[in-house]
């Protein structure tokens, strides 16, 4: 009974979260929704007598893998890929039709399948404890796949290192080189560095562009990532001349 309650609350929520994952625009929101789905699954595992897997699901997936996703999102940033408009003509209807057909057929198949007996349940298998039962299997029947998978893990780690490694072809520019480069190329206006955000504006948060002497906004003062993402606030409302700057006499 408690399991049914859990299922009928968490299950639809998980499905809604999964659908939302496809619909939200920002990848980071997708990641959070996915994390929710995974936590739900962890609950389901535990509810089905897979205590160890439930814990691992939380630790490995929601913890490590999702952190990795967020970390990469931070590295890669956001770009036009976040747009949800379809660029390949006809792909979306086809894909959705096919996938729904797939899902429908699966559901139909599952509903038609009969076991011919009652589900056994894991009470007997978990008699000595779920972790002990899994360990028994892993280190006897599945010891060879276990070892192979360990080799796969090491290989994957090495592969990721190799892929992410960048061979430096020229020496890392020193501060002196950067300084010279700044003065020798581009305009002298940027030689002293780009303007910081919020300058001459009354609001100096990072998403508020600095104001040029003529009162217009200076986009160069905003981080490129924020600019691309459109997280730039119109700073005109914070212009000094819009604000009453009259100094009042203290009475």
């Amino acid at each position: 009974m408690p399991e049914s309650v859990l299922f009928w609350i968490m299950g639809p929520l998980a499905v809604v979260a999964a659908v939302g994952m496809l619909l939200v625009k920002k990848a980071v929101h997708s990641a959070l929704l996915l994390a929710w789905v995974m936590v739900t699954l962890a609950f389901f595992y535990i509810a089905q007598g897979a205590l160890f897997l439930g814990i691992v699901q939380v630790v490995v997936y929601t913890g490590a893998v999702m952190m990795l996703f967020l970390f990469i999102l931070m590295l890669v940033g956001v770009d036009a890929a976040d747009s949800l408009t379809e660029t390949i003509r006809g792909l979306r209807p086809i894909a959705i039709t096919a996938a729904i057909g797939f899902g429908g057929l699966m559901v139909s198949l599952i509903s038609r399948a009969t076991l011919g007996r009652e589900p056994v349940g894991l009470d007997a298998a978990n008699a000595a404890g779920n972790v002990q039962g899994l360990a028994q299997l892993l280190f006897s029947t599945y010891v060879w796949p276990f070892e192979v998978v360990s080799a796969l893990l090491i290989t994957a780690a090495l592969g990721a290192m190799v892929l992410a490694h960048r061979q430096r072809e020229v020496a890392r520019p020193s501060q002196r080189d950067l300084s010279e480069q700044r003065f020798r190329s581009g305009s002298l206006a940027t030689a002293a560095g780009l303007p910081g955000p919020g300058v001459f504006a009354r609001h100096n948060a990072v998403d508020v562009p600095a104001l040029l002497p003529d009162g217009s906004a200076a986009p160069a003062s905003i981080s490129e990532t924020l600019r691309t993402r459109g997280d730039m606030i119109d700073s005109s409302e914070f212009q000094l001349d819009q604000v009453n700057t009259e100094v009042r006499e203290e009475k």
Partner: peptide
């Protein structure tokens, strides 16, 4: 795994 009553599915 639960339906069949053994832990292989979990492995």
């Amino acid at each position: 795994a639960r339906i069949n009553g053994n832990l292989d599915g979990q492995v």
